[in-house]
Design a protein around this nucleic acid. Structure first.
Lengths: 348, 348
DNA sequence: AGACAGGCCGCAATCGTTTGCGAAGTCAGG
DNA sequence: CCTGACTTCGCAAACGATTGCGGCCTGTCT
């Protein structure tokens, strides 16, 4: 009896339990499920439970999924696990999901839309009950299509234009505001922005926040002082900064779209013999690990990464339970972390 | 016809394909599977393929798994995704697995044996066909039990005592040898080792390699100069170094069990007003990301992380195909990366 | 005593696919 | 024309769980 699992061993099935308890498998099923347990006599339920216990019965999630078209699994779509921003978010997601009896299937897309599509297709065919997506671009046909099909879904760190999807993101406005305020407080007046890709909502919202913050402090918004990075990476940050430096505009501080972009600046500083923070201040965004040990330790705006994960998971669970509930989006408050990459500009 | 997936939409099933092609589902199944396709007439096969194409049929992996007791999925057991060592390994694993038509289920154990057990149980009930395990301790009853049950399994970065399991690890002997040789070359004679936990094979093999390397260079092996860290982390590295410093033994260089432990030393340097590398050299192991931007940039021994992943995945696929093949283990060659955390000791 | 309600539980279908078995049909050889 | 060997395909039984439906039994009311 029982069925082979991987390896050479056999696992007990519901039939085995029923046989031992002397009942029909249907009854065993009902006894085992707390929601249907009232339908069976307390005494027989006990017998079934005991039988299940005695042979270490574990329900087969595959058979269950096939029958119920549910899977207690959600899909987690990450652009790149290598980016240290994501692991803590994943951790937050898993913690609340596990507590609710769900599991997460993590997939990497490598920022490749094709790969993303096949990965998501594969998730769906495995009956995932919802998606947490960290790869959203502002214009994202695949996601709007999925949404139109009623796939429960929440976005993290990103939004999609014109689509009312639940999302949880850091509050870029106040985050960038904090960064800019910090720099002007130190006396900087010509501040550059190395913006994230404008194809991502986060890239534009931080860029917009940057412009607004400048205005708030009565600084002119010189368009030449913000340049867009092709991607949220060190190398693209370096490229953008080189471009900016080569353009001849002067500035004494940089607000980077995120920490990786800021770290890319470090490479350029080394190339060009610039000293940070004396010649140039730079501040990042996200508070990824190890920034305190950088040369120099990078000032940044910290976001509650773990909490982003837990909020996202909660939102998704809500959405699964009440599919027609109006989309809520959550903004999490960032905070400033001042280290040594920012300092007053050298008085000439 | 068809069956609801997540959301409000319906996916075509094999029956739909069969209906359109005018054949029995069994025939459709055979036509779709390249291995059984020869059993059906070429012409009907074509019809079936065309029908499947026309409605975008995708086989339901759940139903398939239920029937075949296979899943084209393997489980990936990671102690902590937050450790930057793992993402590149994961990437390597996924790349070869995907190419072979497999998917990977990643689970985090948080270094918690209980959590590990339930996670692995959950993987097995989902019919994973094999396990890649990065959490192995030298004494690991769960793994020996799984192995006894014939679960295909390969270890990465770790081994289990007395168990002949396929594994892929860095060559700790030559890696540590490289590190020690480098320090000796710079004139260090009293070198300390902040060893990884001796409950992990990697911890002991690096510690042993350290002792051997000392002897190779004619240095005395002062047992007081190696202290064990409770875990492979920054904080444990810091604790160990404090202990060592407080013990009063003198030394001018540290070989850390891995990069995180080495970075933990940085914190202690700051506390105690030690300057690295002038007062103290330190070298890590693993070449995790961003080391070049640390203060000071950390010398380390680099291991081919991505390749570790691909070798592990290949080994597992081999094991799945030929379960009784003798276990092979792969040692990957490390290389020295000299940066600025190592320098000749200050002549008094 | 008969009727009816309700509690418990078994029957059997179902989810979508795979696969052993055997039924047709075709063809060639004797 | 019969036999045997092949193709080609359909039938139906799985895989393990869930669930609508209905049957039996007990107990209560009239």
């Amino acid at each position: 009896m029982g069925t082979p699992k991987i390896g050479r061993v056999t696992t007990p099935t519901l039939r085995d339990v029923a046989l031992i308890a002397g009942v029909h498998p249907a009854t065993a099923s009902r006894a085992l499920n707390p929601l249907t347990r009232p339908q069976v006599n307390a005494e027989t339920a006990r017998k079934v439970l005991r039988a299940a216990e005695s042979i270490g019965y574990q329900p087969n999630p595959i058979a269950r999924s096939l029958k119920t078209a549910r899977s207690s699994t959600i899909g987690l779509v990450i652009p790149d696990l290598t980016n240290p921003l994501f692991p803590p978010i994943v951790r937050g997601i898993e913690d609340v999901l596990n507590a609710a009896g769900y599991n997460a299937w993590i997939v990497n897309t490598d920022n490749d839309p094709d790969r993303e599509e096949t990965q998501i297709e594969s998730l769906r065919s495995r009956q995932v009950e919802g998606l947490i997506v960290a790869t959203a671009r502002r214009n994202h046909p695949l996601l709007v299509q999925l949404h139109a099909q009623g796939v429960p879904m929440v976005l993290v760190n990103r939004r999609v234009d014109g689509l009312d999807l639940p999302s949880v993101t850091a509050d870029d406005d106040t985050g960038i505001g904090l960064a800019v305020a910090h720099l002007v407080e130190q006396g900087h007046t010509r501040i550059a922005h190395l913006a994230g890709p404008q194809g991502t909502s986060t890239g534009v919202s931080r860029a917009r926040a940057f412009r607004n913050a400048l205005l708030d402090h009565g600084l002119v918004n010189d368009a030449a002082l913000t340049v867009e990075c092709g991607y949220w990476s060190e190398s693209e940050g370096a490229i953008a900064l080189r471009k900016l430096l080569d353009s001849g505009t002067t500035f004494t501080a940089i607000v980077a779209g995120n920490d990786l972009i800021a770290l890319g600046c470090y490479d350029v500083f080394a190339e060009r013999g610039l000293h940070c923070p004396d010649d140039m201040s730079v501040i990042g965004f996200n508070e990824m690990p190890f920034l305190d040990k950088m040369r120099p330790p990078l000032s940044t705006v910290a976001i509650p990464q773990y909490d982003i994960g837990v909020e996202a998971a909660r939102l998704l669970l809500d959405t699964i339970e009440e599919p027609d509930r109006h989309a809520r989006s959550i903004l999490l408050a960032p905070s400033l972390v001042v280290r040594s990459s920012t300092a007053p500009p050298l008085s000439r």
